[in-house]
């Protein structure tokens, strides 16, 4: 919530990159997105959870790839030339997430963003900034930084310990 408030104060609206996981549409802060690329062969990491596919070489940087579809049991887990990886830049780390598809970039004003109700969603509500409505579409706005550094994702040392 802090982030949304901070940015709302600046421009009263924010740009989000939206992607789909199964039938749900999610939005993340576009400033956290470094690039979007196709799915490449990954090098698996021994004894890591199933949703961590492994690491790839992104121009000399070793980047872990997380398959959100496996993590949240959404969508068809297949890998082909249409599989999309969003490379994120969060908490000084570079992390790639596999999603079903990237939709578009939308601008959401503060009025369009509603607080999320307390329901038991696939995604823990603590990572959801709010729900946005654009043209009859409901977009779940995710605090991607908080999610990626959380204990659940097992991506960060402190959380893993």
């Amino acid at each position: 919530m802090q982030i949304s408030e901070g940015q709302a104060a600046n421009s009263n609206s924010r740009e989000l990159l939206t992607f789909t996981l199964g039938k749900e549409e999610y939005g993340i802060d576009i400033l956290k997105v470094q690039e979007i690329r196709g799915y490449d062969a990954v090098t698996t990491i021994a004894n890591s959870p199933e949703f961590i596919k492994g690491v790839i070489n992104l121009r000399g940087i070793i980047v872990p790839i997380v398959d959100m579809r496996i993590k949240f049991n959404l969508g068809n887990v297949t890998y082909n030339e249409l599989t999309v990886v969003i490379i994120l830049n969060v908490a000084n780390r570079v992390i790639g997430i596999v999603v079903d598809g990237v939709s578009d970039v939308i601008t959401l004003t503060a009025e369009q963003l509603k607080p999320s109700p307390e329901f038991s969603a696939t995604l823990d509500t603590q990572y959801i900034t709010g729900l946005g409505t654009v043209d009859e579409r409901m977009i779940i706005v995710v605090d991607i930084e908080k999610l990626m550094t959380s204990r659940d994702m097992e991506l960060v040392e402190a959380a893993a310990a």
Partner: peptide, 27 residues
């Protein structure tokens, strides 16, 4: 040698990673 911990975390049995001639990552 590239650190795995820069973007990931420590993995037991692996001290780091590197990029091979074909561009793939090897532990």
């Amino acid at each position: 040698i590239k650190s795995l911990e820069t973007n990931y975390r420590k993995v037991v049995g692996v001290s780091g990673a590197t990029i091979m001639g074909d561009g793939r990552v090897a532990m």
